[in-house]
Structure formats: C-alpha cells, structure tokens
Design a protein around this nucleic acid. Structure first.
Length: 485
RNA sequence: GCUCGUAUAGUGUAGUGGCCCAUCAUGAAGGACUCUCAUUCCUUCGACCCGGGUUCAAAUCCCGGUACGAGCACCA
C-alpha cells in the first residue's frame, strides 16, 4: 500500500456531527440582564459560523425568565440584537423571547403532569435537598395526575405563593448523578413586587419555567438541531435528555467549550458589572476598562478580529486562559493596512528650530501606501514638539525630516540627509498640531495623557496608528482612545 | 462529599493506532526591509501531566494516580 499523503492541518471549526446542508438550526441564548461581554461573543461567533457553513439558521433567543435574581434590562434586547448582527455580519434568522412563550411552557407542563412524568412538589428546597442527597423519593412524588393538576392550578391562580410549590420532572432518585434527580422545571415568582420589565409581560404570570425546562421545550419548538454551549451546561444536557425521553423527542446534537479567562481581566460577572455601572464606577457599558463587547468595539476591535480569535480557539472542552495580545494580533492584521499614521507627542517639549531647512516637509499618510496621500508640515513657525523622553537621548533624527542637535530649547538642523545612527523620533510642528489627549485603559485604570495631537480630519471611529505608540480610535479631533500596541 | 469533564511548546491549537524524533498561530530571541517600538519577510527557541497495561506499533486505546474546571439553586 502506498504511503498516505501527509494529513493536512484542519483549518476552521471542527466538523459538525449529523449535519445536513440547509437543515441546521442553531441558537445563541443570552439573558438580557446586562451588557454582553467578551465571552458572549464566543456563542455568537461559533454558532453563527456553523450556521453560515451549513446554510443553516441561527436563532437569537432571549432567556429572560427570571424577574427576581437576574431581572432583564429593557434596553438590552435591542442592543444585544444589534451587537450580535454586527459581530455575525448578518442578522440572526429568528429572534425568540422566552417571556413571550410562557403559554407554550404551561402547555408542556400540563402535558407532563397529565402523563405522569412530572409532579407538583410542595417540599421546601432544603427538605428536597435531603431527599436528593439520600436518594429518597419525596412525599409529593406519588401524587395522582388529578391531584397534580389541582395543585398546578393553585400555583397558577396564586393560592400558592412563591416557595410553596414547584413542578418537578420525574427522573429517578437513585440516579448516580445527584444533579439529575427529579429536577425542578417551573417555579413561582413574586411578579407583583418584581414585575417583568417588559410592559407586555409585567405581572401577567406567577409561574415561570426554569432554564432547563424552558430551554428544552423551546429548542424542540424551534427545531434546533445542534446546541453548542459551555461545558458548565453538560448536566443540563443530561437533564434535558431525560425530559426529551419522556416526551418522545430526540435531543439535538451537542458540543461544548470550556471556560475562558483573559489574563488581563480575570473574572467578571454580568451581574457584578451591571451593579458597578449602575453605581457609577464606570462611564457605561462601553467603558474601555470593561470586557464588554461594546467597550471592545469602542476601542476599535473589529468584528473580523473577534471572529478570527474565537474560531482559532475552536470548541475544545479545555479551560483556557488567554492573553489579550492574542486578540490584538488579529486586530492588527485587520486594521494596519488601512490605518493612517498620525503623530502624538506625549509630554511635549518645545524647541526653536535653527539651521537651514526647507519651508515644508511631506510625510506619507501610510508608509506602504503612498497613494493614501501626504501629511504636510509647514516649518515657518519654527517651533517644534518632541517627546520629553526622547529629548534625553541627545541628538536626534526627526523622522522624515532632518538630523538635529539638541541644546537647551534649541534644535539645530545639522543635515537633511541621514548622516548617522542617532535615534529616529517622531515630532510635530507648532502649526500642525494642537493640545490633545490620549486615553488609555490599563490595569483597570483610565489614564489620560496630554500632549500635542497632529491635525487631522478623520471622523469619529477611524482607526489610526500613532507612530511609535500603537493603534487607537479617533474620538474627536483632539482625542484618541488607545486600542493596543 | 457525590457526579461530570479536560489534560500536546510561555499562550492557544492540529492530530482519533503506523504519515509525528508531532501541525499552525501567537510569543520570545536574532536577522532582512523600512527615516515608527508598525506592517511584511527569513531564521531560531520551545510540548505529547505521571505510572502501569493492550499492541509488531500509542500523543492517539484501557486502568490507576495527579492537577485543573464544572454541576449538585424555587439563577441563566
């Protein structure tokens, strides 16, 4: 037998099992209780890429079924939808809001109660915990369907109060995995004091499905074929599979990814971020110190870079910790070719320009693309700015202009041509610059560097490269938000 | 405690019994180009958690150990 060709390195995402072109349905299901963070991007990107690859559909589903512990934020729905579309490069094919689907969940709960694979449990959480740990059945378990429906109606009409009763899925109390034993499917919430923030829902329902039940039923209703999510939801898959067996449904194909930590950020929870923003610790969801999607966008991280980043990490179940530089290197590739060069002088020192020199100097806007034009520096004013740190280096080469000798507050032109190996530094003329500001988010702090900003007419949002500093995003004529080196 | 999962260079990733003295990217170091500490290009560095077993052959399969992570909420 001939030696096989050396197997090529697989590129892109791993193969989707049991997938049929044009028939794949995936979903991304965030809770609209706060800003979408960096981590949410993984769900959007991975599911979106698979949908694209298989000509399938991507559903954006809002899992907004908790009004007390994780109350949704009214404006989050639209913001998440917009951000997802921007990140995907296309709009989600369907948008589903769980709180609109409550009647469907009730219907399936009743089906479950009538068929006898679910029951209303009046034990307290603590009491049930004991049964679960000791593998004993709770006294409510053998109740008849008739009684269960009766109790269910007491949940619905408010005879029962939150905490009095829950609906459980009957599995098996002797299951090895304690998490799977008769798990809770629906509970009551005090929507009088904690109304759902969507006006059309508000205090309309007392009984609400829990994630595992809601998600399971909804996936079936929507015809989801593949679920790709964090491995923290592995037991959810197992719970839901048991429910699917009861209903006689087939559970979707599932894939998991592990936990991702970013060196520079550590752990941020959505709830905590939301509290901190509301407490005024940050300027908003897009505060550059935060690991939110909007902050990254504001810093100039492109959708393409985010996509490339998450695709590169793939869908392994390994828990990983990545440096921000991994994301930045993707971003540099995306923006460098189009980023105009600009100078910004930190801690500027002014010098009087002496010696013979031309009246003006022209420098390329982009060294690799002369067709992007020239930056013109008029030297009539004869005052130039140099960074304080550079001044200490002795004689300097002013980039694109001349060799100068530094003495006191005077810079004397020694040669227009480069004559030796003196350090090359960036500089600005008095006439071509004004007071400006560079904002840098570093180690959880927002640092502001004042200095001389080169004149430019770039609109807000333009990604520029500050020579010898790094990339940044234009906020206005005199302010740039530092992105990365 | 019970249950589940994962372990390949600094970081991330490919690899599903012989193509592997292990892929690619990133990083670091050096160099070329360049009047930016940018971009581009070249070179170098660097890894299969440990111990058993199965097999002619193991990064790949099995068992044990260790480490790390997750679930066991009337949160998502």
């Amino acid at each position: 037998m001939e030696k096989r060709e050396k197997q090529e390195r697989r590129v892109g995402l791993p193969e989707l099992k049991n997938a049929e072109k044009g028939k794949v349905v995936l979903r991304f299901a965030p809770n609209p209780n706060g800003p979408m963070s960096f981590g949410h991007a993984r769900g959007i990107v991975i599911n979106g890429e698979y949908a694209k690859e298989w000509d399938g559909e991507l559903i954006l589903r809002f899992d907004d079924t908790d009004t007390v512990v994780k109350p949704p934020l009214p404006h989050a729905y639209q913001e998440i939808e917009d951000e997802a579309a921007a990140l995907l490069g296309f709009a989600p094919h369907r948008v589903v809001i769980a709180s609109d689907q409550i009647p469907h969940y009730y219907e399936h709960a009743e089906l479950m109660l009538n068929a006898g694979f679910g029951y209303v449990c009046q034990c307290s959480g603590e009491a049930f915990k004991v049964f679960r740990v000791e593998k004993n059945e709770c006294p409510c378990r053998p109740n008849s369907s008739t009684l269960n429906i009766e109790l269910w109606n007491k949940m619905l009409d408010g005879t029962f109060k939150p905490g009095d009763a829950v609906v459980r899925v009957k599995t098996d109390m002797t299951l090895k995995n304690p998490a799977l034993r008769d798990w809770p499917a629906l509970r009551m919430q005090d929507t009088e004091n904690h109304p759902h923030p969507r006006p059309s829902i508000a205090s309309k329902y007392r009984v609400w499905p829990l994630l595992d039940f809601q998600s399971a039923v909804e996936d079936h209703l929507q015809g989801v074929t593949h679920i790709i999510r964090g491995k923290d939801l592995m037991d959810s898959t197992r719970k839901q599979t048991l429910l699917y067996q009861h209903f006689g449904w087939t559970y979707p194909e599932t894939m998991y990814w592990g936990r991702v930590k970013v060196h520079e950020w550590g752990g941020f929870s959505t709830s905590q971020m939301r509290r901190d923003i509301e407490a005024g610790m940050f300027t908003g969801w897009d505060d550059p110190r935060l690991p939110t999607l909007s902050a990254l966008t504001r810093r100039g991280i492109t959708a393409e870079a985010l996509r490339a980043f998450w695709i590169e990490l793939g869908v392994t179940q390994k828990d990983i910790s990545v440096p921000l530089s991994a994301l930045f290197s993707h971003n540099t590739k995306q923006i460098d070719d189009e980023a105009p060069r600009l100078s910004f002088i930190r801690s500027p020192q002014s010098f009087e320009l002496h010696g013979e020199h031309p009246e003006r100097v022209e420098v390329d806007v982009h060294p690799n693309h002369p067709n992007m034009g020239q930056r013109v520096f008029e030297l009539n004013g004869k005052t130039i700015w140099i960074e304080q740190e550079d001044v200490t280096k002795g004689n300097l080469r002013l980039k694109g202009f001349a060799d100068v000798a530094i003495e006191g507050a005077i810079a004397t032109v020694e040669s227009i041509e480069r004559q030796d190996q003196r350090p090359i530094v960036h500089w600005l003329t008095n006439t071509q610059s004004k007071d400006g500001k560079l904002i840098v988010a570093k180690d959880g702090e927002l640092l502001e560097f004042n200095g001389q900003m080169e004149h430019h007419n770039y609109p807000e949002g333009t990604m520029v490269q500050l020579e010898r500093i790094g990339y940044g995003r234009v906020l206005d004529a005199t302010t740039i938000l530092f992105s990365h080196a």
